[in-house]
Amino acid sequence: MNLQTFRENAWNGLWKQNTGLVQLLGLCPILAVSTSVVNAVSLGLATVVVMAVSNFAVASLRNFIPYEIRIPVFILIIAALTTVVDLAFNAYLHDLYLVLGIFIPLIVTNCIVLARVEAYAAKNDPVASTVDGIMMGLGLVWLLGVLGGIRELVGSGTLFSGIEMVIPGLSPLSVFGDDYPGFLIGVLPPGAFFALGCLIALSNRIRMRAAAGKPARPASDSEGPAPASAAP
């Protein structure tokens, strides 16, 4: 994989084809676990691991997998990796594991993972596929982090609530002080839709301004000279 391919994969995953802002895939975990930064980022990082390793495995085995049974085989690989991640959370981050609950095993059914395996890893080499999985996953992580931060800040006035489950001894930040009454809709399901809608609108606005600022591409020589205007 050359540098240009790496840049394209990174740009596509982090921004251009961001799974949450552009493709709108995996909205169930995005909306469900984004009540805090810690919960959201933790699930996002678990998804990164599954995406990277599953992309590598599928790209390595793609020439040996019959086309007719590729989807069941892909799901089997993803399910095996998700089980490993699920058991690792249970063993080493048990408190966080109890909070995330069913959403770790549900990585198996996440459209993001299967979509990248089918669309990219099944057609490209292992290195490029692994980079694609990592970058697509990191695009999900930063979106989950921002969404979780907005909802946690609005809903409870704190940031990094539950950080002690990951790093013992640390405490969440109380941004608005102990007197902040909280805004309940921020941590309820409607708050997730409102916050994600605002992020999508902001993303579309940035893309439109960037597209408007690009100079028009000059006509190439292959298109021939411009037609002469008709004589009066």
Results as ranks from 00 to 15, higher is better:
Ala212Lys: 12
Gly26Cys: 03
Leu21Asp: 01
Ala192Lys: 05
Glu68Asn: 09
Gly213Arg: 14
Leu184Ser: 14
Val53Thr: 09
Ala79Thr: 15
Ala216Thr: 07
Ala10His: 05
Pro190Leu: 05
Val141Lys: 13
Leu144Ala: 12
Gly182Arg: 14
Lys16Val: 07
Gly26Trp: 04
Thr109Ser: 15
Pro126Val: 06
Gly101Cys: 06
Arg116Met: 02
Leu144Asn: 12
Met165Thr: 08
Asp132Trp: 04
Pro215Gln: 09
Glu118Met: 11
Leu25Ser: 07
Ala46Asp: 00
Val50Asp: 03
Val37Leu: 10
Leu98Tyr: 14
Leu43Gln: 05
Arg205Asn: 06
Ile107Tyr: 02
Val85Gln: 11
Ala216Pro: 00
Gln23Ile: 04
Ile185Glu: 02
Gly213Gln: 14
Lys123Cys: 00
Val127Phe: 10
Ile71Asn: 11
Gly162Trp: 13
Cys28Val: 08
Leu202Arg: 06
Gly162Tyr: 12
Val146Phe: 10
Ala128Gly: 06
Ala231Tyr: 07
Leu188Pro: 01
Asn2Cys: 04
Phe183Ala: 11
Gly157Tyr: 07
Val50Pro: 02
Asn90Val: 07
Trp142Pro: 04
Val187Pro: 00
Leu24Gly: 00
Val175Arg: 08
Glu68Tyr: 15
Gly157Ala: 08
Ala230Asp: 10
Val84Ser: 02
Phe183Thr: 13
Gly213His: 09
Phe89Asp: 00
Ala195Lys: 06
Gly101Asn: 04
Pro215Gly: 06
Gln17Arg: 13
Val48Lys: 09
Ala219Asn: 04
Phe103Ala: 04
Ala52Phe: 15
Ile107Thr: 12
Thr5Met: 01
Ala91Arg: 15
Val127Asn: 07
Arg7Leu: 15
Tyr180Cys: 03
Pro168Asn: 04
Leu100Tyr: 06
Leu45Glu: 02
Ala195Cys: 05
Pro215Arg: 11
Thr19Val: 15
Ala231Phe: 13
Asn124Tyr: 05
Gly101Met: 09
Ala79Lys: 12
Asn18Tyr: 04
Ile69Arg: 07
Ser203Thr: 13
Gly133Ile: 07
Ile134Leu: 15
Val127Gly: 06
Ala115Gln: 04
Leu173Val: 12
Trp142Val: 05
Pro72Gly: 08
Asn39Pro: 00
Leu21Thr: 02
Gly177Cys: 04
Gly197Glu: 01
Pro225Met: 09
Phe194Pro: 00
Ser34Phe: 01
Leu93Trp: 09
Ala10Ile: 10
Pro218Val: 08
Val73Leu: 11
Glu118Gly: 04
Tyr97Phe: 15
Phe89Trp: 07
Leu188Arg: 14
Ala195Trp: 07
Ile104Arg: 10
Leu61Lys: 02
Gly169Ser: 05
Arg116Glu: 01
Val99Arg: 11
Pro218His: 12
Leu31Ile: 03
Leu196Arg: 05
Ala226Met: 13
Gly177Phe: 08
Ala210Val: 05
Leu61Ile: 00
Val108Tyr: 01
Ser174Tyr: 10
Leu87Ala: 14
Val187Thr: 15
Cys198Asn: 07
Pro181Ile: 11
Phe193Cys: 11
Tyr120Ile: 06
